[in-house]
Design a protein around this nucleic acid. Structure first.
Lengths: 193, 193
DNA sequence: TCGAACAGACAGACCTGTCTGTATTGTCCG
DNA sequence: CGGACAATACAGACAGGTCTGTCTGTTCGA
């Protein structure tokens, strides 16, 4: 018999439901009662697995980082077979995300905005996540540029973040094309010189 | 005697207080009671000037757009005296904003995230504001590039938006330097060819 | 029999929005 | 000049709902 520890079914249902609702309607707009109702879970089960709503928020952010990583991993692998250029494959995956139903921007950006408090553990996690994400991006740029990537990668990061917020506000994925073209141009020029 | 219409002192105090609190702590985190307390206003005065909290939110967004315009106007005028390049002056003003105490990103982006509802009048206003802001940026680029600006301006917009969210999450204004250098480079190249 | 989860009442705080009543001020008219 | 009147805003009670988090039971499966 497996130790149920962190793999409890109830716990998993809570995580997935909270993740979906938080992303859809916002962290503050979603109450505990709604989460337990849609997850078909008793309130005490939630408070047994998570000390508080703040604790649940943090757990959801960690859970989502795993899912995001997984999403980009598989999507880029799919595109990588025909483009070879990993950065190009990344932007193709990004576009898929923008076009997916229910797209509402970056859950980490959104969480940082809603939490507002810089001392909140969730806010700290968002900061760390963005640093990890930026390193991931820098890694992709590096495959084309080698060590010269350091000068281009930060700009690519800004283009990606800007494309996310613009796409969600304008309700259109077009921004990703601008970001991709500009990013690839920056890389090409850095390589050309 | 002037018609007090929209220039009521109470109304103005409510607007300024709500703007400050909404930006500081978030729209949903700030209740009506707190606004009227800090504005030193009766609750009925608030509900006389604004039909509902949603109505107040929208009024605050409009008020803030005026203030933002004013801020960039004066700041760019100040910097414009020594740089001549309006785009450069804009980024200098942007940096001033990032470094100002209590900086918490773009109030319009934040509002869109908090409201979550695409049908909310505030969300619609944010979309329109961002379009106006993008046109303003495009105008700056156009001063250097003329009609060729159309190809560069959208990328500059993404860089600016990306710099805003990155600066607030990382708690550092450094992103603006990357955005400025990249934007100026894009413009210079478009001019050079 | 024992542990995990379900079910739901409950407390205490906070939310928006309505309502009543009072104080102040300026204007108009006799 | 002076009193009635209208407009504006302050003060705060109140209703009805929602929020988080705690508590007591019950049910079910190993």
């Amino acid at each position: 018999m497996e130790r149920t520890k962190a793999t409890s079914e109830a716990r998993q249902r809570i995580l997935e439901t909270a993740d979906r609702l938080f992303y859809q309607d916002g962290i503050r707009a979603v109450g505990i009662d709604r989460i337990i109702a849609e997850a078909a879970v008793a309130k005490m089960s939630l408070y047994k697995h998570f000390a508080s709503k703040d604790d649940l928020i943090l757990a959801v952010l960690k859970y989502r980082e795993e899912k995001i990583l997984e999403f980009f991993g598989t999507a880029m692998e799919r595109y990588g077979k025909r483009t070879k250029d990993k950065l190009r494959a990344f932007f193709a995956a990004l576009k898929d995300w923008f076009e997916s139903p229910g797209f509402r921007g970056c859950a980490f950006q959104n969480a940082a905005v809603e939490l507002a408090d810089p001392k909140h553990a969730g806010t700290q996690f968002v900061k760390d996540h963005k640093r990890r994400f930026q390193e991931f991006l820098a890694g992709l740029v590096e495959e084309s540029l080698g060590k010269g990537a350091a000068k281009v990668a930060p700009a690519v990061g800004l283009l990606v973040e800007g494309a996310i917020v613009t796409a969600v506000i304008q309700g259109s994925p077009d921004a990703v094309d601008v970001a991709r073209d500009t990013a690839l141009k920056l890389v090409a020029e850095a390589k050309g010189v």
